[in-house]
Simulated assay, not measured.
Amino acid sequence: MNPQQFGKVAVLMGGSSAERDVSLRSGQAVLNALISQGVDAFAFDPAERNLFDLKSLQTDRAFIALHGRGGEDGTIQGALEFLGLPYTGSGVLGSALAMDKVRCKELFKARGLSSAEFVVVEQGAQFDSQAIINEFGAVMVKPAHEGSSIGMAKAATASELNEAISNAFRFDDTVMLEKWITGREFTVTMISGVAQPIVEMVTPRGFYDYEAKYQANSTQYYCPAELSQSETENLQLLAQHAFKLVGASGWGRVDAMRDQAGQFYLLEVNTVPGMTEKSLVPMAAKANGMNFSQLVINILEQTL
């Protein structure tokens, strides 16, 4: 690897989404890794600088470490294409579709990929909380366009559901109510279209929420996950189908659950997953013999 081949690299981090803090940590880790490999890289926060400054700074390409809206939803990807700058990860369409949980689920359903049942609630629209609980039992409440489990909550009663929906509306005008799955939670990292070793996340909390991801010391990770070879291959194949279906490319992550009967269910596709010290993508890459610096370079090479 010749670091000069990349030219000047902007690591886009921060931004103005609800995931800003995580993005700053991811971006700093990526920046440190690039610099350690001799790449001419610098930090760039779109929330603090005009994106057109990238041209005056003579930037050659961008490593996107922005999470959430504005960075993971196709917005920054479209802007970079307008500027003529190569960038890491998925393009405009793949980013936009993957970020939209509702359209992701509709695509899974249309293609016959296993995913939990769901209903959608729009802000200002009428809905019957008790009827939803009667139909689904417990549900997972998710803002349609957020990541890092922000605004998510489990609801098992009508009153809990009303409270969870009200909180989710603080982050989004559209909220997805997904049938609760009791079982094990997994994630499959995708690098250059290849599924990496599966990670299983185990937390004493109700689910793998924001605190379990970034703050708690009680979360346990198993990589490779304790699955049979056939189960591993089935889940990796399911993840590859989902990743390709939404138009994602380059690198990313596909989250899934396995219920007590052994059935896998797709949750969502992440096109700019976390790259912090607790993140799952570096963990999966390490299990496949790739250290963090090699992972970052591998992702950046996809822009050449």
Rank of each mutant, 00 (worst) to 15 (best):
G70Y: 05
T203Y: 04
T232S: 15
E122I: 03
G89T: 09
M257A: 14
N288K: 08
S114Q: 09
Q236H: 04
M275N: 02
E135H: 13
D259I: 12
R184S: 01
G252M: 07
E268N: 03
L93Y: 14
S149K: 05
V121Y: 03
S228M: 04
E231V: 01
G15F: 15
G68R: 10
E277A: 10
G137R: 09
G15D: 10
F118E: 07
K8Q: 10
M1R: 14
V202N: 11
E268G: 05
R205D: 04
N162H: 13
S17I: 07
S192C: 14
Q240I: 13
L85I: 13
A153R: 06
P46A: 14
I297R: 08
G112C: 08
E178S: 02
T276I: 00
F42P: 03
M140W: 04
I150A: 07
R253K: 06
L280D: 03
F108V: 07
I198M: 11
S129Y: 01
A131K: 10
S293F: 06
V121A: 03
K8N: 12
Q126G: 09
G247M: 11
I299G: 01
A225P: 14
A43P: 06
F186W: 06
S90N: 03
E185A: 07
S149N: 10
D173Y: 08
Q126D: 14
Q4G: 10
P86A: 09
R25D: 13
C104R: 01
A18F: 15
Y208R: 10
E122Q: 14
K154I: 11
R103S: 06
S17D: 15
T75W: 10
I132K: 02
S218K: 01
S249D: 04
E48R: 12
V272H: 00
T182H: 13
G147M: 12
L107Q: 06
L161K: 03
V139N: 05
I76N: 03
N32W: 02
A285N: 12
I76K: 03
R170E: 15
S159K: 09
T88A: 07
A125T: 13
S148W: 06
D173Q: 12
N134T: 08
G70P: 06
Q28N: 15
I165Q: 03
S114V: 00
P282C: 13
P204G: 15
A156W: 02
V39Y: 00
R20H: 02
S129W: 06
T187A: 03
A168E: 07
G14R: 05
P86C: 13
L12S: 11
S90E: 09
T174I: 15
L12N: 00
F6H: 12
R258D: 08
I64Y: 00
A98C: 08
G206K: 12
L227P: 04
L66E: 12
L54A: 05
S279G: 04
S192Q: 08
K55I: 05
T219D: 14
F169P: 05
L266T: 04
V296G: 05
A216F: 05
V92W: 05
A242D: 06
T303A: 06
S23K: 08
T303G: 01
K105S: 14
G78T: 08
G38N: 11
K179A: 09
E185N: 12
Y87S: 09
L161N: 01
L34A: 05
Q58A: 01
D45P: 02
G124N: 02
M275G: 07
V120D: 10
A212S: 15
V102Y: 01
A242K: 11
S95E: 12
R111C: 07
Q126A: 09
